[in-house]
Design a protein around this nucleic acid. Structure first.
Lengths: 349, 349
DNA sequence: ATCCCTCGTGTAATCGATTCCACGAGGAGG
DNA sequence: CCTCCTCGTGGAATCGATTACACGAGGGAT
């Protein structure tokens, strides 16, 4: 039960609680003798300040909330890891909330985080219009969007721009002779959902290729939706030659669907994905993907948020994504493929 | 700085703060009229109680800490997800700490969680002897070990027993004609690190096969260590015919090393792993693995911990793992492999 | 020697809730 | 009609910290 409090420390050191607090917070001047005795008492009692009480008084928790879209998605766990790393370096803790791509779960977590009086919020919104998020931002909660964002809010955004990489991908695909290209999109309500489709369409347009509705699969960034969308593509009278999945989990689902049909990648159909993850090197075949600078994104997001909290004015950050060619889109020589693999490996290390 | 407090609600409703609190906590009796006005005021003001203040007073946060060994490991994220799910259902929040398999990081997180006065701690210890963990347990912090545990502490353990599955695996490997079997172990300081080796050795002994030291690679549950261990195996004068990785990330590293050598699985060397993950279906080749009932483990762990917190006395839980055969260990007919794959898929859904 | 400033320290208010205790009103029972 | 109990309510203490303010002691300047 216990709970050694500041009073116990004060009593043992023979000083007042104020002095103990001053020693612990290096505030105003304290005599060396008193400091010594306080420190000794802290040590002897194993005293740890109650963070709740401290936060209640100071109105700051030195805690940041991170609403992650889906913990099962390797891209987001990598992001979470770098966010936590940077936050720790800056003296903040992170409290995660897993939204599982469900708006109501997202709102649940935002509410509990706000109730806990976190100092700021890092959000990758699961839907486009959560009023709760916007309200919180307007009410003055320091907030930064990462990866995805909600338009119309005065909130800094840290994200990557995949347009150039998508153009590179389309050039690569076109070069391999593919003309019928399909995409599995994320939810239209998310920015990454709609942007990636737009980028793909634009890149296709440069080659005079259209993107018919039948070649746009509606996914939700989860594996099952990738499977369904791919099944639909394969059932088409004229199926696409390439499927581009807007995230890694939908690519996994696409792979499932293709394998279930008894088809082979890239011989029967090519596959590429947004978001590169370590497993893509070892899938059958290794998958061509668009890699985001995940670690930098996480770091930049935390810096932007702490800037906001500490009174500085951060700017939005946009970092370029890049194409990583493996051989899921067409025949390449073994050496070329190996080279690409090694290059990826090296840059990931 | 904003902050609508209980006083504001009380003022607007024309009652005292005590009454507001009573309404919000459904405590003693409140007249319907007063309750009505309080609720209206709460609604109008958008009042949310300050969780810090409440926790300070009540000495409970309704928050559980989860120390996860490595967020980048799909096994642990799956565990984290089910833990959060069950906790939410029981009215608790989860605060995660990622230990990255580093004891000092683990201790850092435990300390901050304790400072926050979480109600209980779910730990999958990164090392065997963290004094901090043991001290916390002895000091009365409700605690449950999950997956891994530290011997000699009076703490319930929720884990899976892989011994039967390892026996099945060895039988499978033996049946395919393999006789030189190696293992990439986790850190000896972790229970899962040493237990899996012991189970493997026992299972081999049943076939009169020894496990020489040269066939035990020392890993740390991270991909890089799997790579190094595998390289060492392959450089042996008599390399093993099978490599069994004690977790999925080390299996990924093994795959890297094997590919870098220009060898093929299972033709040149067979590979199996502990922990099954969705990607294993699509690696080249699909990997034979031992699957843990991850979701059940997470749920059971949370229930054990909340039992402890709420004064009931939970028991340790051990659930069996099971072998999932794919074709990374030897030739199988396509149909058999497909059947296995489908079976896995179905049970994962 | 006196005055004033600085330094070290303690007392008490405060953060925002919960909850013990006291108190007045009203109904039931005698 | 008086007593007693219950019900609804408010006042105030409390949780464990931080911090404004006050105050005494000591040193330097005049």
């Amino acid at each position: 039960m216990a709970g050694i409090g500041i009073k116990d420390v004060a009593a043992r050191a023979g000083v007042s609680v104020a002095t103990v607090s001053r020693v612990l917070n290096a505030h105003t001047s304290v005599s060396p003798a008193a400091r010594e005795r306080v420190l000794a008492a802290v040590e002897a009692l194993g005293y740890r300040p109650n963070a709740l009480a401290r936060s209640l008084r100071t109105d700051q928790t030195r805690t940041l909330g991170l609403i992650i879209s889906d913990v099962l998605n390797p891209y987001f766990t990598a992001l979470a890891r770098s966010v936590e790393e940077e936050a720790r370096a800056l003296g903040y803790s992170i409290v995660f909330g897993n939204a599982d791509e469900r708006p109501e779960l997202q709102d649940h977590h935002i509410r509990t985080l706000l109730d806990r009086r976190i100092d700021g919020l890092l959000v990758s919104p699961a839907d486009g219009g959560s009023p709760l998020v916007l309200d919180a931002a307007r009410a003055g909660t320091p907030m930064v969007f990462v990866d995805r964002w909600i338009p119309g809010a005065d909130v800094p955004v840290v994200r990557s721009d995949g347009r150039a990489a998508v153009r590179d991908l389309v050039a690569h695909l076109h070069g391999l002779g593919h003309r019928r290209l399909a995409i599995i999109a994320g939810p239209a309500a998310t920015t990454t959902g709609s942007e990636r489709v737009a980028a793909f369409r634009e890149a296709l347009a440069a080659y005079g290729i259209a993107l018919p509705d039948a070649y746009i699969g509606q996914g939700d960034f989860q594996a099952a939706s990738g499977r369904r969308a791919t099944e639909r593509f394969l059932a088409l009278p004229e199926p696409p030659e390439v499927v581009f999945a807007a995230d890694n989990l939908m690519a996994l689902g696409a792979l499932d669907a293709i394998r279930a049909r008894g088809l082979r990648v890239p011989h029967d159909i090519a596959l590429a994905a947004f978001d590169d993850i370590p497993w893509f090197v070892h899938t059958d075949p290794p998958l061509t993907a668009i890699a985001q600078p995940t670690e930098e994104l996480g770091r930049a997001a935390v810096r932007a948020l702490t800037d906001l909290i500490e009174g500085r004015t951060p700017e939005s950050v946009t970092l370029p994504a890049r194409l990583v060619v493996r051989n899921s889109c067409g025949e390449r020589t073994t050496t070329a493929a190996t080279r690409a693999t090694l290059a990826t490996r090296r840059s990931d290390a």
